[in-house]
Design a binder for these strands. Sequence first.
DNA 1: CGTTAATCTTGACGGCGTCCAGTTTGGCGG
DNA 2: CCGCCAAACTGGACGCCGTCAAGATTAACG
Lengths: 193, 193
Amino acid sequence: MAYHHGDLRRAVLDGALAAIEADGPAALSLRDVARRAGVSHAAPAHHFGDKAGVLTAIAAEGYDLLAAATADALTNGERFLDGGLAYIRFALTHRAHFEVMFRPDLHRTDDPALAAARAAAGAVLFDGVRRQLGERAREEDVIGGVVAIWSFCHGFATLWLSGNLDRTRAPEAVAEAAVATAARLADADAFQG
Amino acid sequence: MAYHHGDLRRAVLDGALAAIEADGPAALSLRDVARRAGVSHAAPAHHFGDKAGVLTAIAAEGYDLLAAATADALTNGERFLDGGLAYIRFALTHRAHFEVMFRPDLHRTDDPALAAARAAAGAVLFDGVRRQLGERAREEDVIGGVVAIWSFCHGFATLWLSGNLDRTRAPEAVAEAAVATAARLADADAFQG
DNA sequence: CGTTAATCTTGACGGCGTCCAGTTTGGCGG
DNA sequence: CCGCCAAACTGGACGCCGTCAAGATTAACG
């Protein structure tokens, strides 16, 4: 085994992601990750400083991936919901990233790289909604739209990942059906009882 | 210090809840909880068997509290959304419970008491939606309504708790504004681009 | 080719969850 | 009122963890 690993940083991230995917973020052990990477138990700390550093890097990477995944759908998607479906698809296919990103107690929220990645991903969301609503849309409506679609998609993804939704149908189909139902209920003034 | 604590079970739960509220579930230490309860480090295990046992009990208690909190609003609420606002309010005021309930990797998901509490809370949600839609509602629509309102409210609560939403306004106001915006967008066929 | 900085190792420390054998205590049958 | 049993709790041990400090190894560059 070479003294220098080559790309230990990447290896630690990948090992941590695999471990989180398997057993959740709580069960992550840096020593185990180091062991699997064929490296001493203290090596990871040299690249990330800290366990929180590893999770911070994962969260930042997650925001980058999320921004890339949603950017297309939100700029080119035909429907308001297409960006949302991309969000859901990201959460389900990058479960480990997703679970770390929205757990502030696990990482250093003041990390500059993380803050930048988060801000960029947020900008993608806002711009996409603004574009859907047209340039003359009131800022108030943009915010409302962002909160609405973000909350729905985030909640759906979280509930799906935590096993609270019926998984016999495809997630996209379930989500679309829910939105369609909600739209019909809104039309029928069901929200006002 | 008396050899018998009196109600150590409750003391452990309360101590754990306080610790989770302060630093998140990942930072929970049974030894620390025992210390604060004035009891030996191995005492909690005698009541819960396990750290996962403590978290399982917290999750079950959370589902009971959630069911109670939403039952009123969903049966007596005038609007479809009232139950949802109760859900959000529960999440924000019982943050520790909420954060454990939806993290299956932290507790024993096959625990009978937990499964029963979860099923009861789910039944409250389903019945509330069914009542809002009328007895003649198709099961398909009930499911769609449940997924829609549950996803939105759960996502909103999660995003709020993780610090991703603007907290200068009251959560209920932000949530209602988002729903109103989404309803108008649905009316305007904005979902279809 | 030598020096310097980055990379990694080794060992130590305290804290953690969990198991185990032993101690104390409340409560119940007599 | 007493003795006894089961429940509650203690104290210590074990292995694993994250983190720190000091030293060994290597890559890169003048």
